[in-house]
Design a protein around this nucleic acid. Structure first.
Ligand SMILES: [Zn+2]
Ligand SMILES: [Zn+2]
Ligand SMILES: [Zn+2]
Ligand SMILES: [Zn+2]
Lengths: 137, 137
DNA sequence: GATAATTCCTCCAGTGACTAGAGCTTCAAG
DNA sequence: CTTGAAGCTCTAGTCACTGGAGGAATTATC
């Protein structure tokens, strides 16, 4: 039996976050000690590690909730789980694309400034006028 | 003299967002009509376009506040403005790096699933065990 | 066994940058 | 002069936590 602090140390998930996940229904409400403190077992540890890893990969809580629900039915086909991951990959790629456009534009803006006065600062001028930009963003 | 709705249409910034920027001190509190409605002039339009563009480039509100303050002193050197942009570029690049790692890992995970049952689903298994991952993330 | 230090509990508020709604007032067109 | 659109303020909700207050329980030390 682990206390919430033990669980936290083993998974790297902070104590208030564990309580938050319980509130959000990602983990079941833990058993309590006589003095009302949460007590966890191995399967709680596994589930929390699952959640942590999914969060680290950028999945949001509704997606994780769905993945947990799916994982309860081992005999079902996994198309939905695969789709969740694939959708997330698409979202990640879209974010990368947007950020690359920003990177490109920022590089250009910064390199165009000769670094003298604010009056001539290309950073300020570029911000004032999107017309100076090369692409959309 | 523009109403807040006119300003909104011309800059693409939504009406409640304009009021929010006023509250955050990014734009000065506008003059008011007799009936207490905000009235704007050309320079408000320019400033709001500046803010909008800076936000589109991913700068946060404290950074924009600082850039606005700097732009009020045309004779000062622009090192601080350039630094804000450069710092932001660094942050953008870091985000891209993280997302690329996620992209790589997600690609790998998805491609390893044969798409049959949840029991064998590589997506679920990979989420359960970071040890199956190639890199950190 | 008493005390002290640590951990735990619940509840509430704050983060960033908006966004939406309720309930009311003002404005512009016809 | 009426009507409907647009404006006003204030409050609360978004997402995924994070931190603090104030108090109870547990664990360690003496
Ligand atoms: Zn400059
Ligand atoms: Zn631009
Ligand atoms: Zn699968
Ligand atoms: Zn991993």
């Amino acid at each position: 039996m682990l206390s919430i602090g033990d669980l936290s140390k083993r998974t790297g998930v902070k104590v208030p976050t564990i309580r938050y996940y319980e509130q959000m229904g990602l983990i079941e409400a833990a058993e309590r000690s006589e003095g009302n403190q949460r007590r966890y077992e191995r399967n709680d540890l596994e589930r929390l590690a699952f959640i942590r890893h999914a969060r680290d990969l950028g999945l949001d809580i509704p997606a994780i909730r769905e993945l947990i629900a799916l994982s309860q039915h081992p005999d079902q086909p996994c198309a939905n789980a695969d789709r969740i991951a694939a959708d997330h990959l698409v979202a990640v790629r879209e974010k990368i694309e947007k950020l690359k456009k920003l990177e490109h534009e920022l590089e250009r803006i910064i390199s165009h400034c000769d670094g003298h006065s604010i009056e001539d600062c290309y950073v300020i001028r570029a911000l004032s006028d999107h017309g100076l930009c090369e692409g959309e963003h």
